[in-house]
Structures are given as structure tokens and as C-alpha cells.
């Protein structure tokens, strides 16, 4: 992002601090500027880009309570005086709609779908996430590359290929995974939609003729992939079988502690 636009965004950012920051606010989390850190091959043309904000990811299956938690955390962070940007998979204006369309018609191969999601993700990463981080925002992402890699892996795509594909992703500061028992998950899904989603049940994989069985098997496979990735990507598992308030307290404590720690270091 160049001069004027960035300046504008910074001004907007500053004014939002003035208006929303409260007396008991946490220290601003975004003082020092840092270069981008990648998982794999970097994006060469962004080598001069510096970010000031912080990046937090909440992962977890459908109906695990991610979006509820994100709403609560966003509201708390904003009341503490932070500018927050929410983002998620499939939200790119550019191609998000195309993915839904293609999935509705069940016409995509596994690798095509994977690349499609990667293209959508790249658009959001460069046009939304990195720009917000440059301007000092706290970016709260509803899912990130881990979900995409887990889906690829259970569909038979080599993990090393996905890892390279998403190697241009920048490393978040914190990654939480809402770990919910698949049996519990089923109840929540039915409460929410009264039916199981085709893809979230792995129905395209032909795991079982019974949709419920398929859902349970698929969710276990995905959870297994997350456990596999946990150490390598520093994913913090959060017991998602508890109440909304209990989970929120747990997450918020961890986030607050992190924000205090980084503000002391700087």
C-alpha cells in the first residue's frame, strides 16, 4: 500500500483510538513495526512490507462456536481500545461467490477446489489482512490455512504439497483450535441447521451411506489432521465442550495475556 492510502488508514485508526479507548484500556499492542514472517517461500514483492498489528486465528469445525467467540472477543478488544478487523475463509469479494457456486454444482475436483480456496485466500491475505496489520489493527480470523490443509489431506492431497501451496501465508501470533467432541458437535449442528452440510460431512468422500456416520467419520479425520499440525504450527487446543462463557473467559485471558506481554517487550 502506498503513501496516501496508508496515511488515510492510519488517521482513521488514530481517530478510532481517541473515540473508543477507555480509561482502563490495555496498552496498545502495536508499537514496533516488524517484517512479515512466512511459513514457506515468501512473497518476494512484499519484502519491504512492515506490519504493526497483531494477528489471531480461531479454528474449529462448523458449529464449534467460532463465530460466537469472535463476536465476543471483537467487542471486548474494541472496548479496550483496539481496532479490530474480522476476516474468514470464503469472504473475498473477488471470488468468494464463485466457490459457493461451484460447490453447489459439485463440479470441482479436489485439487481444483484446493487451488480455488488458495486464490481466494491470497486475495484476502494481501488486500485485507496484511493491510490491516500494516495499519496496526488486531486481525481476528475465523479459520485460516489449517482448515484448508486439513480438508486437502483427508481428500488425499499430499500434505507436503498443501504446505508449500500455503507457504506464502504469514504466521499468526496466536492460533486457537476449538476442540469439540464430534458427538457433541452433531447436536449443535442439528440445533443450528437441523441438517448436515454436504461438505462438512465429507459426503463427497463416500465415507458412508449414512449421512450421520459420514459426518462423524469426517469430523474425526479433520480433528486428527489438526492434532497432527498442532505442534508444527503452534496451534493451541481449547476445550470447546464447555459453555460459551467458559470458553470465552479462557480465550480472552490468553489473548489479554499475550497483548500485555508484547506491549512490555516493545
Amino acid at each position: 500500500m502506498t503513501g496516501l492510502k496508508q496515511q488515510k488508514q492510519e488517521q482513521k485508526q488514530q481517530s478510532s483510538f481517541k473515540t473508543t479507548r477507555q480509561n482502563d484500556a490495555l496498552p496498545i499492542a502495536s508499537i514496533g513495526a516488524r517484517p512479515l514472517q512466512y511459513y514457506g517461500h515468501s512473497i518476494p514483492y512484499l519484502h519491504e512490507t512492515q506490519i504493526k498489528g497483531r494477528f489471531i486465528v480461531i479454528e474449529g469445525p462448523d458449529a464449534s462456536g467460532r463465530s460466537t467467540q469472535i463476536v465476543m472477543i471483537t467487542s471486548k478488544l474494541e472496548s479496550d481500545g483496539h481496532a479490530v478487523l474480522n476476516t474468514g475463509l470464503r469472504r473475498s469479494e473477488l471470488i468468494g461467490g464463485g466457490i459457493l457456486e461451484a460447490k453447489r454444482n459439485f463440479i470441482l475436483g479436489k485439487r481444483t477446489l484446493s487451488l480455488f480456496y488458495a486464490a481466494d485466500f491470497a486475495d484476502q491475505l494481501e488486500n485485507k489482512i496484511i493491510r490491516a496489520l500494516q495499519a496496526g489493527y488486531i486481525v481476528l480470523a475465523d479459520r485460516y490455512i489449517y482448515t484448508l490443509m486439513a480438508r486437502d489431506a483427508v481428500r488425499g492431497i499430499r500434505r507436503i504439497w498443501s504446505r508449500n501451496l500455503f507457504g506464502f501465508a504469514i504466521k499468526p501470533d496466536l492460533i486457537f483450535y476449538l476442540d469439540v467432541d464430534p458427538g457433541e458437535l452433531v447436536h449443535r449442528v442439528f440445533q443450528k441447521n437441523s441438517s448436515l452440510d454436504y461438505y462438512e460431512s465429507g459426503a463427497d468422500l463416500g465415507l458412508s451411506e449414512d449421512m450421520l456416520d459420514s459426518f462423524l467419520i469426517y469430523q474425526r479425520m479433520i480433528a486428527k489432521e489438526f492434532h497432527r499440525m498442532q505442534k508444527h504450527y503452534n496451534i493451541v487446543p481449547i476445550n470447546g465442550n464447555r459453555s460459551i462463557v467458559e470458553i470465552n473467559t479462557d480465550l480472552q485471558n490468553r489473548i489479554d495475556k499475550f497483548l500485555i506481554d508484547v506491549s512490555i517487550v516493545k
Binding site: 512473497i43 514483492y45 473477488l94 471470488i95 470441482l108 475436483g109 485439487r111 481444483t112 484446493s114 487451488l115 480455488f116 488458495a118 486464490a119 491470497a122 486475495d123 491475505l125 494481501e126 488486500n127 506464502f168
Partner: peptide, 15 residues
């Protein structure tokens, strides 16, 4: 962006 551009062509190719 170049990365998005690249991945869209890769999607086309994969399809």
C-alpha cells in the same frame, strides 16, 4: 495481486 493471479490460473489448469 501476482499471487492471486497465479493461483487463479493454477485453478483453471487444475480444473
Amino acid at each position: 495481486t501476482p499471487t492471486t493471479f497465479s493461483l487463479l490460473h493454477a485453478t483453471d489448469f487444475a480444473d
